[in-house]
Nucleic acid binder design. Structure first.
Length: 114
DNA sequence: TTTCTGACAACAA
DNA sequence: ATTGTTGCCAGAA
């Protein structure tokens, strides 16, 4: 396993993202931290960007630590991300999740399946 | 091949 | 407290 590089990193992001339950959200930092690199939050978002090839990934449930839907611009519709989250019961105000901590979901809770 | 950028977050001044 | 820079890894030009 030499060539083996962080391509796994992306795959892990995908796996985690798929485990996010409806009505819950997580942050890039939380996932990055779970992957072992708290500073690789950018990569999480980058991975999700590539994940657009895979519709199975609820990228709309991943937001930045501020609870802001930073990635909404990457969706088909600017408001689509917010609409999806609201549809799941998440209260969003001006592209920002209200009471984020209440909806925050941690990948470590699901680590049992990793 | 090298260089830059990119859905963030943390640290330094 | 706010602003700016650095770190992370991979993909695109």
């Amino acid at each position: 396993m030499d060539k083996k590089i962080a391509t796994n990193f992306f795959e892990r992001v995908y796996k985690i993202a798929r485990q996010i339950p409806a009505g819950k959200v997580t942050t890039y930092g939380a996932i990055a931290n779970f992957l072992g690199s708290p500073k690789s939050a950018r990569m999480v978002g980058w991975a999700l960007n590539a994940s657009k090839n895979d519709m199975s990934i609820p990228a709309h449930r991943v937001v930045n630590k501020a609870g802001l839907l930073s990635g909404k611009v990457h969706f088909q519709g600017i408001n689509l991300m917010q609409q999806l989250l609201e549809n799941e019961g998440v209260i969003i105000k001006d592209n920002k999740i209200q009471d984020l901590d209440n909806y925050l979901w941690k990948p470590e809770l699901f680590s049992e399946n990793l």
